[in-house]
Computed example of a mutant assay.
Amino acid sequence: MTTRTWFITGVNSGFGRELAAQLLDRGDRVAGTVRREGSVGDLADKYGDRFWVGHLDVTDPARIRTVVDAAFAELGRIDVVVVNAGYGLMGAAEEFTDEQVQHQIATNLVGAIRTVRAALPHLRAQGGGRLIQLSSVAGLAAFPGGSLYHATKWGVEGFMEALAAEVAPFGIGVTIVEPGGARTAFAGGSLQLGAPLAAYDGTPAAFVRGIRDGRVPIVGDPAKMMARVIESVDLEPAPLRLVLGTDSYRAATAALRARLAQVEPQEATASTTDA
């Protein structure tokens, strides 16, 4: 088994914590970031020097550069950079405040882009590595009540897919992880809902209100999902997308087929606008 060094944003809970714990258990080194200092004290006590912790809010661009630079400076080569920090903002589009909209985009999309941009010079200088973006099936399929969350996930998917071709000449592989629902603390912690408007009661957008109180079934096992992420780093070339969960596979394939069905009948009319 190859021992690696990983940089992971958002290791205090959810997928980030599960991934960090599995890696540390198997003997790898992890540089993890947290928004709340002291939130991973148990991991620090257990794993000592193999667990490096940085305090980071990914909405702070200067801090992103500082923390990423410090991790590479102190640990040397970092083999895998995992962009994981984020949260879900759900509800109908007009149920959010402007501040909620801005913060969701600043965290999930802009924060991810800035983290990748901070890591790239180091990965190029060391001759390669892996970039892993924790996205979601919400980056491939869209559902009512998820408009803002989809906006960030679809955005980061486009960024990472284009980036994969840009950095391939430098030996940097890119993988976008597409999990479905997972039994993490997402529903009770990192999921936020807009203030409900009565106009949307009983409409498709109201479906997401059932996530928090358990009315939406969740089948994904986060431990199995993160084990698959770890296994993916041994694959050459890096898989561009890693689909996790039967719900993710079904939703993604249905959405892609529907998109083709919408586009393909327009082949003849599309050509009528050519010069």
Rank of each mutant, 00 (worst) to 15 (best):
A73N: 01
R130T: 08
A141D: 11
M160T: 01
S135N: 14
V68F: 13
Q262K: 15
H103A: 15
D213C: 14
L193I: 01
G27L: 01
G91Q: 13
Y200V: 00
D79E: 12
A85H: 14
R212L: 09
T33Q: 06
A119D: 08
V137L: 12
L163R: 04
M160V: 02
F143V: 10
A70P: 03
L240G: 07
R209Y: 04
G214H: 11
E231N: 14
L23M: 01
I176Y: 00
G54I: 07
G158T: 09
M160G: 12
A251L: 01
P222F: 04
I172M: 08
L193T: 09
V83D: 15
T33M: 06
T66K: 07
P144Y: 03
V167E: 02
Y200A: 02
A119I: 03
L191T: 11
V58F: 07
V82N: 11
G158K: 06
A125I: 07
G220A: 02
R35P: 06
R209S: 11
M226S: 10
R17T: 05
A31F: 02
L140S: 11
A261Q: 13
I78L: 10
G202R: 05
R257F: 12
S147H: 14
G214Y: 14
E37I: 15
G146A: 10
A106R: 15
T203K: 01
A254W: 02
T3K: 06
A261V: 05
A71K: 10
E95C: 11
D221W: 11
L43F: 10
T175Q: 00
A142E: 01
G139R: 00
F159C: 09
I218F: 12
E94K: 10
A261T: 08
P237S: 05
A112G: 15
Q266I: 02
D79P: 07
A223C: 05
P121H: 15
G245M: 03
A141Q: 11
G173E: 03
G76N: 11
E178D: 03
V83H: 14
D69K: 09
T269A: 02
G91P: 13
F15C: 07
A258N: 13
V53A: 02
A71N: 10
M160R: 09
V68K: 13
G146I: 00
D213K: 10
G245R: 07
Q102P: 11
A270N: 05
L89C: 14
T203W: 03
G127R: 10
E37F: 15
P237C: 01
V177Y: 06
A185M: 14
P222W: 09
F186E: 13
G145Q: 07
G173W: 07
K46C: 09
D274V: 05
